[in-house]
């Protein structure tokens, strides 16, 4: 049982990292960023090709994260920025971007899955009666580190404060002279970095392919709804909850239908609280 829980926590950390990126962007720009799947995919491929080209893993990972950040900011600058006043057009643009990014990856690297080797592939930790592969442990560590860093950014820095403000009342933030475009770009930058972290953290477990992020993205959206669109801590809590739920369902009921449990959770939330678990009138970040 505890092994199942540990696996659930691992899954939850993955969901949390991806969901936080989604919810940040949503809080600041009201955009359901489907394109994030493409960001994760391109990050993973960058890490893979850097690693295949001979770079030490740490550098390859950094390259992947940098790629994620760059692609994410590009989606903002080239596309999302122009529909800032038309939130209804956001799903359409998001889908268009996802098509582009996934198929760019397909074009560059082909559709076959590639495996990503990491230095900690063969590590197996044993604590109590529970074992955790090196890859999964690395994910948990990376997730905790990056989320803590984000928390510090949001709560202690001027930029982070501004981002929280923009999510709560965009116009009031603008009136104070906060440069909006920079805030949008920053939200996407952070989301891209988190996407890159997610990519290198779980690419070794699943194969690197243009479609590797689809299921995770779906679950991440459930998390975002669970935690409340725009709430970072909601995304973290929701991620862990969903990870455990899916883990339990997968272990005790049916592994093939893992994401279906997430769907059931989503449906129950939406039926009971159409605005998400922690919905308030103001959108919140952190």
């Amino acid at each position: 049982m505890s092994q199942v829980l540990v696996n659930g926590v691992f899954l939850g950390c993955l969901f949390a990292v991806v969901a936080v990126g989604l919810t940040l962007v949503y809080g600041v720009m009201e955009v359901p960023n489907f394109a994030h799947a493409g960001v994760i995919v391109l990050s993973a491929y960058t890490t893979w090709s850097a690693s295949a080209a001979g770079l030490p893993f740490a550098l390859a990972a950094l390259a992947g994260i940098a790629c994620g950040a760059l692609v994410s900011v590009l989606t903002e600058v080239l596309a999302y920025r122009w529909i800032i006043d038309r939130p209804a057009a956001a799903p359409a643009v998001a889908l268009g971007l996802m098509l582009i990014l996934q198929n760019v990856a397909l074009r560059l690297y082909g559709g076959e899955g590639r495996s990503l080797d990491t230095p900690y592939d063969r590590v197996l930790l044993r604590l109590g009666g529970v074992s955790l592969s090196g890859v999964k442990a690395a994910l948990v560590v990376l997730a905790v580190v990056s989320l803590l860093a984000l928390h510090l950014l949001l709560s202690r820095t001027s930029l982070g404060r501004a981002m929280r403000a923009v999510a709560q009342d965009r116009e009031a933030a603008a009136i104070l002279g906060i440069p909006m475009r920079r805030q949008y770009a920053l939200a996407f930058l952070i989301a891209g970095v988190l996407g890159g972290v997610a990519a290198i953290a779980y690419a070794p477990t699943f194969q690197v392919s243009p479609y590797m992020a689809d299921e995770v993205l779906l679950s991440a959206f459930v998390v975002v709804v669970l935690g409340g669109l725009g709430s970072v801590w909601g995304a973290v809590a929701g991620g862990l909850v969903l990870g455990v739920v899916e883990g339990l369902g997968s272990a005790y009921l049916s592994p093939a239908y893992q994401s279906a449990f997430g769907f059931l959770l989503l449906v129950s939330i939406l039926v009971l609280r159409p605005g998400g678990l922690r919905s308030t009138n103001a959108r919140r970040v952190a």
């Binding site: 501004a162 403000a165 709560q168 009031a172 002279g177």
Partner: peptide, 18 residues
Amino acid sequence: RLFPNMSIEDNLLLGAYG
């Protein structure tokens, strides 16, 4: 138009953004 879910201090600090 204060930011309702942020502390008073954070609201004030935002006034001096930049």
